[in-house]
């Protein structure tokens, strides 16, 4: 099984799309999620998200991701619930009330974050990080330094997750019991951030030195050999995403439930 945000090889249409087109499409969809308050449109975007995931056999990963984002979004949803006194009053609070509109606001936060996160993470799963960085440099003229920083940061996520798992395993072998409640687990994990931090600093330092000695600073936009041409499917995908974005903006003027 592949790790978190690690590229999963495949030959689907999405896999074959231009990396920049994939990224821009994902951004359009994500922006669209924040431009609309329509539950119907957000539900439609969620359906599109999962249809796209299914087309590249990533349904399981998309579902796991949606679940993880939903769990983290609960905090924001609760804040929205407690700080959006809208609609018919249901519960009185010292600073306001929870109304029907508050529940809708909380649900909106959850749906919005899940709907916008799935396509962005999907791009990571179906695009090689090198291709993403190189195409950003070639097509978008992003300085290689920044593209490399971005891809390195993403690349290190599974590495650090693996490190943390190894550190927890080492402490378990010494008698630390991580099984138990969430609070206990967090309390036990806090001191383990020290070895993780040390290992992270060592790794990033080594990576920086390795990049430096291999001529990182002499690289220019022309250095990459691989070309990233746009094809018809990229244009169609971009147009479709522009339509979704336009629809999301339009829902602010033409109310849709």
């Amino acid at each position: 099984m592949k790790g978190f945000l690690e590229y999963v090889p495949g030959d689907s249409v999405l896999h074959r799309m231009n990396p920049v087109a994939k990224l821009v499409c994902a951004l359009f969809i994500s922006v669209a999620c924040f431009c609309t308050s329509s539950f119907m449109l957000l539900a439609l975007i969620l359906i599109i998200d999962f249809a796209l995931a299914a087309s590249c056999k990533m349904t399981r990963q998309a579902a796991q991701l949606a679940k993880a984002v939903a769990i983290f979004s609960v905090v924001l949803a609760v804040i929205a619930l407690l700080t959006t006194p809208v609609g018919t009053e249901l519960v009185q609070l010292p600073w306001g009330y929870i109304g029907t509109g508050s529940i809708a606001a909380a649900a909106l936060v959850l749906m919005r974050l899940v709907a916008c996160a799935v396509p962005l993470f999907l791009v990571m799963y179906i695009t090689k990080l090198n291709d993403l960085a190189n195409s950003m440099v070639k097509i978008l003229h992003v300085p290689y330094k920044y593209a490399f920083t971005f891809t390195s940061a993403v690349h290190f996520i599974p590495v650090f997750m693996n490190d943390m798992a190894g550190i927890m395993e080492a402490q378990t072998a010494r008698g630390v019991e991580f099984d138990g409640g969430f609070a206990k687990k967090v309390r036990l994990m806090v001191p383990l951030c020290v070895p993780l931090l040390v290992s992270s600093v060592r790794k990033t330092n080594s990576a920086a030195i390795a990049a430096e000695v291999r001529g990182f600073n002499v690289r220019t936009r022309q250095s990459g050999f691989k070309a990233y041409p746009f094809s018809a499917r990229d244009v169609v995908a971009l147009l479709a995403c522009v339509c979704i974005l336009a629809l999301a903006i339009a829902t602010n003027y033409v109310p849709i439930p």
Binding site: I167, E169, A170, A173, R174, E177, L192, V194, R202
Partner: peptide, 24 residues
Amino acid sequence: LRTSELAAKVGFLFQNPDRQICCN
């Protein structure tokens, strides 16, 4: 047996000491 119970019977030295060391 839980791994923590086994820790009293079996000591384990990992290849990478940095995964084990965690104190100041």
